[in-house]
Simulated scan of single mutants.
Amino acid sequence: MAHMLSLKVAILLSFCSLYANATEITENGYPILWEKSPGQLTELPSVDDVIVINPWNYLQRMSLYKLTLQATDMYMTSMGENATENPLWGLPLQLAWKLKSGRLVDPSGVTTCGKETGDPMCISPKSWWACVNYYLSVIPFLAAVETGIVGQGLKIQIQAPSEASEDYCVSFSDCTSKHPEMMSKWKTFFLALKNLSSADIPQFEKKDQILGFMWEAQQASMHTGSKCKERLKHYSTLEVTFSRSWTKSVDYVAATRLHSNMERSKLFTSPLPSRILREGDKPPNAPGLSSEENHTLSVFTWMDSMNTLLGGTLVQMWQSAMCSERTREKGQALLQDLVLDPKFVFSGLLTILIEMGSSC
C-alpha cells in the first residue's frame, strides 16, 4: 500500500514538473513517464491468470508501446545498431505530446479525467485525440500479440472504457470483425518484420520494405480513426482544422517511408502545438505558443487549405512524386524544411513536386 502511494506521489510530481516546460515531450531522453510505464507484461494487473490492460490509463497505454518496441528491436537490425533506431518510436512520442498538450483530457469538461486537478493519468474516451490514438496503440499491440511477437503463451485482455465502450474493439477477433483492413495491415507488418529480418536480401532493401509495411499500417489506423469524428464537437474550429491536417499528414510522411526513429520523431513532434487551440488563435501569432509551434501550425493550416483548394490533389501529387528511393529522400528533406525552416516558401512546394514527379 505504501509502495503504491509513493508511486502515485512520484508520478504526480513528475507530471507537475513537466508543465514547467510546455514543449518538452521527453524526460531522460525517453517519452514522458516512459520509465514509470510497465516494461513487462507481468507488471500489469491480472485477474485469474489473465493480464488485463487498461488503455485508458496513460502509463498502461504507454506500456503497450514499450512492450512492442522491446519485442521488435531484434527484428529491426536493418534500421541501425542503436535501439533508438526502431521506427516505432514515433508512436509513443506522439502519445507523450498528446498528454503534455492536454489533448487526452475530457474535452467536454464534464469529468476531471486527464486534468492535473483530477486524475492526470486518465485518458478520456471522449477525447478525439485519445480515440484516434487508440487505433495507433491498442491495435498494433493486439496484432503483435496475434503474431506471437509479444506475450506468446499468455492470456491478455484489453479493458473497455467505462463509457462509449461500443466505439472500441477490445480483442484481435473483435477488431478484425469491425476493421478488417486495418487489422490485416498491422498483422502483415509484424509478419513481414519477422520474415524480412532473416531474409537473404541487402539491409537497405529490408529497411525500405519494413518501413513501407509499417506506414501502410499506420495509414490504415489513422483512416479508421474517422470513427472518432463525433468527438470533434467539443473542440474549437481551429483545433478541428488542425486535427484534420494532422490526420492528413500521415499520408505525406508515409509516402516518403520516413525512418521515424527516436531522434527524427522528436524533431517532428516537439514543435507541435503545446496546448489545445482556441477560437481566435491565428497562426503565426497564436498567443502562448512558441515561434516554432506557430510556424508548424501555419504549415499545417496552409497545407490543409491548399489541399482543399486543389480538391485533394496536393496529397496525390505528393504521393506520385515519391516514386523512388531518390525522390523519397528528397521528400523527407522537404518535410523537414517545411516544418523546421521558418524561411521556407510554401508557394514553392508545388513547383518542387512537379519537378520531382516529372522524374518518375
Rank of each mutant, 00 (worst) to 15 (best):
M1F: 08
M1A: 12
H3D: 14
H3A: 15
L7C: 13
L7G: 05
L13N: 10
S17P: 03
L18T: 04
Y19I: 09
Y19M: 10
A20N: 08
Y30S: 13
I32E: 04
L33W: 06
E35V: 00
Q40M: 10
L41H: 11
V50D: 04
Q60I: 05
S63V: 04
K66W: 14
T68K: 13
L69S: 10
Q70R: 00
M79S: 00
N82D: 14
T84M: 11
L88I: 04
P92T: 10
Q94V: 14
L95A: 09
K100W: 11
G102L: 03
R103W: 07
L104Q: 05
L104N: 05
K115T: 09
E116R: 00
D119R: 07
P120G: 01
P120L: 01
I123W: 00
K126A: 05
K126S: 08
A130C: 02
A130P: 00
Y134H: 09
S137I: 10
S137T: 12
F141A: 10
L142H: 04
T147M: 09
L154Y: 13
L154A: 07
K155Q: 13
Q159K: 01
Y168S: 06
S177A: 14
E181D: 11
E181Y: 12
M182C: 06
W186H: 04
K187G: 03
F189G: 08
L193M: 13
L211S: 06
F213Y: 12
Q218W: 00
Q219E: 11
A220P: 01
A220I: 06
M222T: 03
K227T: 12
K229H: 13
R231T: 11
L232R: 12
K233Q: 07
Y235V: 08
S236T: 11
T237C: 03
L238M: 11
V240M: 08
T241Q: 15
F242R: 07
S243R: 15
S249A: 13
S249R: 14
Y252F: 15
T256A: 01
L258C: 06
M262C: 06
R264H: 10
S265K: 07
P273G: 04
L277A: 05
E279S: 08
K282W: 12
P284Y: 09
N285K: 03
A286L: 09
P287S: 04
G288F: 02
N294S: 09
S298R: 15
T301F: 12
M303R: 06
M303H: 05
N307D: 15
N307S: 05
T313I: 03
V315P: 00
M317K: 15
Q319W: 01
M322T: 01
E329W: 03
A333H: 08
Q336A: 07
D337G: 02
V339A: 01
L340M: 12
L340F: 03
D341Q: 07
G348N: 13
L349S: 02
L350S: 12
M356I: 01
M356K: 00
